[in-house]
Design a protein around this nucleic acid. Structure first.
Lengths: 209, 209
DNA sequence: TAATTTGAACTGACTGGTCAGTACAAAACT
DNA sequence: AGTTTTGTACTGACCAGTCAGTTCAAATTA
């Protein structure tokens, strides 16, 4: 079971179907929520028969869980890359933070629906995919926390800062600002939004230029 | 019709029932989402028969909408009070911002479930209560934007800042940090969390003092 | 002050529709 | 030649909303 002709990672055809299903599910669930979205809708939007959904995923919940894993792994990879890139170029930790803010914006710009759905589910309890979500959240936040800790160790950041809380606050800043951007002023450019957040991040809001 | 003994503003009994329904609904919906929460569950949790829900609210959606309105009006009032209080005491705009951050934290501390539910619904589209949510969101954000604008006008904040985006970012910072606090390190004190956010807000993260 | 009436508030069994998941034979891919 | 997809039909659990009937405290009456 599972080998077939194209061995590495399953057949392309199947992979394509799964991708279509992800894309259909992500927008529908972002808009309506998990429970209000029906499997029939997802199948229709993906241009696929309902049976195909169940051929590819064990259940609606499993489809959603794999969608979450898939999406967050993209984000985590992108954040890591941004941090490492900055390090290689000999930038400071503030530069790394800034690069990660930008990476976050790029991600949300490309996958606004996923982001929205993620935020909507993140703090819920008593849901089937709760544990998956926790794991995946921690992976992403850990990247930010890592940079903060390095900054504290290297004397670049104050030792007084609370790493965990500050990381959460930074994530929240980017998340909410970006969702606001996408929802209420989508015509603005990414650079524009990034500049506004950089200014806030570097404490240049209060007067001193 | 409608007079009865206790005239002013409807009977106390009815009001008490509605309050119980709000409280039951807010935790259930925060945990499970709107669609996954049944009216039977809400009624049971409130210690009331299902029919009572429909005697008091036209539908499940209406119950939820009124819950949203009720909750956000509390938040808005609290933010306004914080801002005005600071102004009366002759504080700066940074002080006002800081007071509002604290007011936000106090609110989330008291009503974590409501906050969670609000965040989960805020960026959705195609839902019945969408317009209600927009109105109510704007009321709250406007308070923050107002303080920022006054700060810019008074020369206290840089003219370069983007008021709308910065307001969103500030809200996000408080929101996500507070939800993280409540979810993952609930033993910490409000003062503690407030201090961490103040530090971030005043740009004291990067080295200097 | 005891008996009666009123009506707002509440109850919970019931209905009609919806939806996740199943079944499977035929078709299409690779 | 095996894997994947299709299309249609079906089942059974679940749930929003309804409605005929009940409760009870206050108001009215005698």
């Amino acid at each position: 079971m599972e080998s077939s002709s194209a061995r590495s990672g399953g057949s392309t055809r199947r992979e394509a179907t799964r991708q279509k299903l992800y894309e259909a599910a992500v927008t529908l669930i972002a808009d309506q929520g998990f429970s209000a979205t029906t499997v029939d809708e997802i199948a229709e939007r993906a241009g696929v028969a309902k049976g195909t959904v169940y051929y590819n995923f064990a259940s609606k919940s499993v489809l959603f869980e794999e969608l979450l894993r898939h999406g967050v792994s993209l984000l985590t990879a992108s954040l890591k890359e941004a941090a490492e890139q900055t390090a290689h170029e000999g930038g400071s930790r503030v530069d790394a933070l800034d690069a990660m803010v930008r990476a976050g914006l790029v991600f949300i710009d490309r996958y606004p629906a996923f982001t929205q759905l993620y935020v909507a589910e993140l703090w819920r309890t008593n849901r089937a995919w709760q544990s998956t979500l926790m794991v995946v959240r921690q992976e992403a936040v850990a990247v930010v926390e890592g940079v903060l800790r390095e900054g504290v160790a290297g004397g670049e950041f104050s030792e007084e800062i609370d790493v965990q809380l500050t990381a959460a606050a930074l994530v929240g800043m980017v998340l909410v600002a970006a969702l606001d951007w996408k929802s209420f002023q989508p015509q603005r450019s990414l650079d524009d939004v990034h500049a506004a957040l950089s200014r806030l991040l570097q404490g240049r809001v209060s007067g001193r230029v």
